[in-house]
Amino acid sequence: MQTLSFSQKLSRFIISWILLMMLWIAFTSSFVTQELLVGVFATMIISFFTVNLFTCCTLAILSPVKIFYMVKYIIVLLIALIKSNFDVARRVLTPSLPINPGIVKFKSKLPTEFSRMVLANSITLTPGTLSIDIIEDTFYIHWIDVKTTDPEEAFKEIAGQFEEILLKIF
């Protein structure tokens, strides 16, 4: 684990406080003063003790440009998810099961662990792919209908559009 400066720690503390507070409000779904006060103190204590564990993001993630790209990412992901569902439906309902499975690998340029995890989860939800393992920056992907075994082309086919947006967020 890397050592952090004080300002980094403070920034992480505040961002996890804000996120946990949003989660608290969504859980309780009420805006009574006592509940909000309990939430403020409970989330403050939790985010104080977990400042070294929640390494996902700092306060910089709240800038408008990044929020715009996050919304764009969610829209792209939803479209891919709907496409992949119709893909699964077509394969399942065809009597002859048109599959040609295999495992391909490719390298990604993403810098942090957290962004790689987001990319792997998104790959699992896109048409016909399932991420099996990440070793350093190499992704191993189970592909239900292998079109190419070349890493570069497989990368373009599977993860190109997601990585483009993720590089701008992280």
């Binding site: 998810l81 569902n85 499975p101 792919t129 239900i144």
Partner: peptide, 10 residues
């Protein structure tokens, strides 16, 4: 693996 794929997405 194909079962996991179909199961997860749908």
């Amino acid at each position: 693996y194909n079962r996991i794929q179909a199961g997860t997405k749908a």
